[in-house]
Simulated assay, not measured.
Amino acid sequence: MDKSVITVTGGTGYIASWIVSDLLQEGHKVRITVRNKSDFLKYQHLLDLEGKTEGELSVFEADLLSPGSFDAAVKGADYVMHTASPFFLDDGGDPQKNLVDPAVKGTKNVLEAVNRSASVKRVVLTSSIAAIYGDSREMNDRGLASLDETIWNESSSLKRNAYSYSKTEAEKAAWEMVKKQAEWDLVTIHPGFVLGPSQTKRIDSTSIGTLLRILRGEIKSGAPDLRFIFSDVRDISRGHISAAFTESANGRYIIANESGNLLSIGKVIEAAHMGAYKVPKNLVPKWLVWLIAPTIGFTRQFAKDNIGYPLAADNRRSIQDLKLVYTPLKSTILDHVEQLKSDGLI
């Protein structure tokens, strides 16, 4: 693989840290963007890693909502991996401001920098499986055996699954922008529910927080039958890199594998660590989840449309085109538990 200059936006994030780590180990010149360059503790782990690899790391300050702020980081780059986007389900009462604007305007801001760079050959955008479906019942309603990359989320809105709406609108904006020029192309990556060991001790990721809740016994009385399609963070990193350097790669790629629920996670942990953690041992009936939904952070509509419905993803494109070999879910969970344990977080 030729050594390249690669810009990774939001470079200190859960997924981005793995991408940066893998790129540095391959010897590339990696540029990351951060909101506050003086807060070096957030990227110290990457500086430490740089010294152990043949790669080079540069740090740039940029803000998703500040026009032109990505220009310096993007100018002269061969590839851009745009991972920076808010990921939290609590919209703070203003989904437009807290979710949609950073996702959509931020994506446009980065791609406008790409347009001005004259050097970028390909952009790899971190989208989400949330841009493919909004509610779990949709697969059942459409009579589908699995979700694939041809499907778009058409049900989410500012008032309904705002996070999913933000990811959908950001990806749509990217595809519209790529049509208007011929200098660079676009590949989008669609993770599911991300788990796997983190490069840092940060726990502000929604998925990491969920695993911690399970390990700390916060849902020991039972878990709702809310299904997920899981992704290993290391597989996602490999998917981004392969999408950049595989010339024939094109379009959208689901990077996710096995399906399950929070009880599935609990069973894996219990089998490996008998009695060490108060993991859920049973499912809470759907009628009860619906009844208490407002007290546990759900709406009753969300409970109705998402509890108890099967989910599955067709990841054949990623296997065929990107040559991905997926990490078993059991390994993903246990490796993540070990990382949290060794970092003193559980």
Results as ranks from 00 to 15, higher is better:
A271V: 05
Y277P: 10
Y277L: 11
K267N: 04
I269W: 06
G266Q: 05
I236K: 02
I241S: 13
E258H: 10
A272Q: 12
I265N: 09
I254D: 04
H240K: 09
A271C: 04
F245R: 05
R252S: 00
I269Y: 05
K267F: 00
E270S: 13
N257P: 00
R252V: 01
H240T: 11
Y253T: 04
S264D: 12
A272W: 06
G239D: 07
S237K: 04
I236E: 02
I241F: 13
A256C: 12
S259K: 02
K278C: 03
F245W: 06
I269E: 08
K267C: 01
G275D: 08
E247L: 01
I255T: 08
A256E: 12
I265Y: 10
E270T: 06
E247Y: 00
A244R: 02
I269G: 13
S259H: 02
A276K: 15
A276Y: 07
S259Q: 09
I269N: 10
A256V: 12
P280H: 12
A272V: 01
I269H: 09
G251W: 04
S248R: 00
S242C: 00
G266I: 06
S264A: 07
K281V: 09
A249V: 00
A244M: 06
G275V: 08
I254T: 03
K267Y: 00
N261K: 01
N250E: 05
V279S: 11
A243K: 02
V279P: 11
S248N: 01
L263E: 05
N261A: 14
A256K: 11
S242A: 14
G275C: 10
L263G: 09
I255N: 03
S264F: 06
I254L: 13
H240D: 06
G251P: 04
Y277W: 12
F245D: 02
I236V: 15
I265W: 07
N250A: 07
N250G: 00
G266R: 03
R252E: 01
I265R: 07
H273V: 01
S264I: 07
L263R: 03
I269D: 07
I236R: 00
A256Q: 13
L262A: 11
K281A: 07
H273C: 08
S237G: 14
T246E: 14
E258K: 11
F245L: 14
I255D: 07
I255A: 08
Y277E: 05
G266V: 03
V279I: 14
A243W: 04
K281W: 08
G251L: 01
P280C: 12
T246C: 05
N261R: 03
N257I: 01
I255V: 14
A249F: 00
S259G: 10
V268K: 15
N261G: 15
S248E: 09
N261C: 14
E247P: 00
T246P: 02
F245N: 07
R238A: 11
N257G: 09
N261D: 15
L262G: 13
I241C: 09
K267R: 12
A271G: 04
K281M: 10
M274Y: 01
E258R: 07
I241P: 10
N261S: 15
G239S: 05
T246A: 08
N261Q: 06
N261L: 09
V279W: 06
P280D: 04
V268G: 09
V268R: 14
A276E: 15
S259E: 13
M274P: 06
N250V: 00
I265A: 09
K281N: 08
H240N: 09
G260D: 13
